[in-house]
Design a protein around this nucleic acid. Structure first.
Length: 554
DNA sequence: AAAGCATGATTCC
DNA sequence: TGGAATCCCTGCTT
């Protein structure tokens, strides 16, 4: 087949096949002053190649007359070099060997052979300690502390989607928090700064506060002093203090009192936790710093402490519920596929006491991963965190949620469901019950242990509910600005909206049976810049419970 | 089904 | 130095 030209004025094209030598012709070598590569997906050219071959084009820029060489050698999608391939093969991702390990970021090996690879048979190996004590000493010291239960209890892992898969937020879920005393109440925050309060046994009973923050609500915690008060940290640089009953929010702390001075100075608050003993709020920003704020005086205590790479987001802070000085932090510095453990937040904070490599570094589009302690684990060991890198489970690429024993670095459990093909960066263990709430994209999941699954009001056990929350307004969300949210529910079952629901029945070892779809219409255009125009068609209608659930046999 | 988009840190030039 | 390109193991909508 003769070479094809794409435009009449285009230079001659030379096809270089896989069997050819890697050298260009001598004529080209003389003429080529510079090379460029580009993906050429033009059908006429691709027809010449085999499906998985990369088409590489070499051309000169002078006068548009020099020949173009199209190489049909198989090249790596990532580094564009021949001799190997990278990318998904079925449900397994093959790393490019030319790049550092995606997991631990060290060169010389890939994720598959990384010693830190998260896999049940190997576990998660603790990274090299920066302090002098070894892991055994660490665990021992932890266990001789008087407050600590000396014997590690058997872990109970909520491993089955029990209640529902609820698409409830209009933007990705960024944080979750269980009510401190009411077992069925879960709070959820999203990228828009909205705060949802809902009963996960009656998912249609919910309240949404739209004016708590003007942008991402990154983390929240209930006040140790009041069931009705929740603190929240946001990328708007404030810590809010919100009355859960009324939604009335006060600003506890504002790191940007001077307003917007450009991205290099705008501080965003990501990680947050409460320390009841010290009556302090711990918050961490996008520049790597940890702040302590006294809740009584609203004043900062001490100076900000750099706890992650300077200039990077500290996306998660969690004081151990049993031993509040023991801090778990997660950064997003693209070397932090590492969880950091700090023995005492009021002690030496120069270096973390331990680091554990775990796959949670990501590129874009996701809520940052953060590890959280299991508040029911008196041995201060069990943590939960979502995994970024997918694993091949019977041909499906799934992203498990990992339970890691911090004292040993071992992967205690990994949970997944064949219906859930999305990544779950947000995970919250219930303070009293064996319940895990997960946030994945816009959806929420409730997990319970298989053996403890029990019927949920309104929802049959083992069924997945997909509720798509209508979003029909761009919400002008300036502070003090009007909120035109009429948080209506017009439910229009669509029978779609959950990617893999069709293969749920009987497929996979963790099939969840019949799926209930509860999809709400979403019909609006999404010009969604702050302060953008209101494109709402305000078609709020009352909840029609008859339409709310739609049974869908796969 | 495939394309487009939202989106953000890093790297490139 | 800063704007453009890149990443291309996302999730959702059209």
């Amino acid at each position: 087949m003769p070479p094809e030209t794409r435009r009449s004025a285009f230079p001659k094209v030379v096809i270089e096949r896989d069997t050819d030598s890697e050298q260009s012709s001598s004529e080209e070598e003389e003429e080529e002053e510079e090379e460029e590569e580009e993906d050429d997906d033009e059908p006429a050219v691709l027809a010449e190649s085999e499906s998985e071959e990369k088409v590489e084009e070499h051309k000169t820029k002078n006068k548009g007359k020099a020949p173009i060489t199209i190489s049909l050698k198989k090249v790596c999608k990532v580094c564009k070099k021949p001799g190997h391939e990278a990318g998904f093969k079925g449900a397994t991702y093959i790393d490019c060997p030319m790049k550092p390990c995606f997991l631990c970021k060290m060169p010389g090996h890939t994720t598959v052979t990384c010693p830190h690879r998260v896999a049940t048979e190997f576990g998660v190996i603790p990274a090299a300690r920066k302090s002098t004590r070894n892991a055994l000493e660490y665990a021992f010291e932890r266990q001789i502390r008087p407050r600590i239960h000396p014997i590690k209890p058997a872990y109970v892992i909520p491993d089955q989607v029990n209640c529902a898969v609820i698409r409830y937020h209009s933007r990705r879920v960024t944080c979750l928090e269980f009510h401190p005393t009411n077992n069925n109440i879960l709070l959820s925050g999203d990228k828009k700064g909205q705060l949802g309060v809902w009963d996960f046994r009656k998912v249609y009973e919910k309240v949404v506060y739209g004016n708590v923050h003007s942008c991402i609500l990154n983390n929240m915690k209930f006040s140790p002093a009041s069931d009705g008060t929740v603190y929240a940290a946001s990328s708007d640089g404030t810590v809010s203090c919100t009355d859960v009953e009324t939604g009335i929010a006060l600003s506890l702390m504002n790191l940007n009192p001077g307003g917007w001075q450009g991205p290099s100075t705008w501080r965003m608050l990501y990680g947050m936790d409460m320390n009841a003993e010290k009556r302090a709020v711990l918050v961490a920003d996008n520049f790597g710093y940890l702040y302590l704020v006294d809740t009584r005086s609203n004043n900062r205590t001490g100076n900000p402490i750099l706890i992650h790479k300077k200039g990077s987001k500290v996306v998660g802070l969690h004081c151990n519920p049993v031993q509040p000085d023991l801090l778990l932090s997660c950064g997003n510095d693209h070397f932090d596929n590492r969880l950091c453990i700090w023995d005492s937040i009021f002690g030496n904070m120069d270096l973390p006491s331990r680091e554990i490599v775990h796959s949670h570094d990501f590129n874009r589009y996701l809520t940052p991963f953060r590890a959280e302690w299991d508040p029911k684990d008196s041995s201060e060991s069990l943590t939960v965190i979502g995994r970024y890198i997918s694993e091949n489970y019977n041909g499906a690429a799934l992203h498990p949620i990992d339970f890691i024993d911090i004292s040993t670095g071992q992967l205690v459990a990994e949970i997944m469901d064949p219906n859930i093909t999305t990544i779950s960066p947000v995970n919250k263990l219930h303070p009293r019950d064996d319940v895990l709430a997960s946030g994945s994209s816009r959806s929420l999941f409730i997990w319970r242990p298989k053996e403890k699954s029990e019927p949920v009001e309104q929802i049959d056990v083992g069924k997945i509910l997909v509720c798509d929350r209508d979003e029909k307004k761009s919400r002008k969300r300036k502070f003090g600005g009007e909120s035109d949210d009429s948080d209506d529910d017009k439910s229009i079952p669509k029978g779609k909206g959950f990617k893999s629901q069709k293969k749920s029945q009987g497929s996979g070892q963790m099939g969840v049976g019949r799926i209930l779809v509860c999809d709400r219409d979403e019909k609006k255009s999404r010009k969604r810049k702050f302060g953008d125009e209101n494109d709402d068609s305000d078609d709020d209608k009352p909840i029609s419970k008859g339409k709310w659930y739609k049974s869908q046999k796969k």
